[in-house]
Amino acid sequence: MNGKLKSTLINYLFVLPAVLIFAIFYIYPFLKVFQLSMVEWDGILPTMQFIGLDNFKEIMQDKIWWDSMWHAGYITLIALTFQNGLALLLALVCDREIKGRNFFRVLFFVPPILSEVVVGLVWQWILDGNYGILNNLLSSIGLHSLVHNWLSDPKTALTCIAIVHSWKGFGWGFIIMLAGLQTIPRQLYEAARVDGAGSWQMFSKVTLPLMIPVFSMVVILTILGSMQVFVLIIAMVGQGLVYHTTVPVLRILGAMTGSSRFGYACAQGIIFGLILIIISFTQKKFSEKIKQA
């Protein structure tokens, strides 16, 4: 009995440092933000007015806020499909013994390293309405009807941002999935090949089942990263095209220092966090179900 207690205590020691840091640097700010979400406060005055859940009620009716949530969702959907599809494809290719894979592996990680300033400048240049490379390319192959200003047209602005975001982020999915693929024992492939499996069968029978936890993780990371994107948006379209390119984080920052509504910003932050938690945990449960099936 004593031994078991001791063993449990030792087990606690493993998580103790993490919990300590978490308790000091996360819990206190979190509680404070929670408290501030129920006041009307400009972030400066020594006095704040307690208004209960009024901020949350206002958010429910804030159309621009929910629009911005939808924009982030749209960017996330494109990232989930386009970015992760590309990342998986490239990871599968680089997992095989092909020539030059080291070279590609290094290059694919360039976009995540690049500063948003550079990414913004380069893509603005590519997408520019007057001198842009993309428009030049389109008109040289005869697609004049498609030539327009990509970033100041509400129909294309958000999609362009989503694609650039996916391009900048696929390197992460790529290395995580590559790490996952590399942990699959090669003998399993050999065994499958001996059994006469084709490459698709090997993928669906060997790779896929073993990769589900990694996929699930990449999906959660993509959701978190894409829902919170904002530096790239500022770098590409400044303070935004009307309200067509605004996202929750930009609304929160705007409310906090722009219009000095600190309490409201904190309430927005909490609603946003709740939504992220709901999405992520649903996704997690979902992938656990698939794994069991």
Binding site: F22, I24, P29
Partner: peptide, 23 residues
């Protein structure tokens, strides 16, 4: 405890710079 960490990873706290600084 693990889910607490997970939740923390998911909640961005843009307003937390003030309490963090004060802390």
């Amino acid at each position: 405890l693990f889910h607490m960490f997970l939740a923390a990873m998911m909640i961005p706290l843009p307003g937390s710079f003030v309490p963090l600084y004060v802390l």
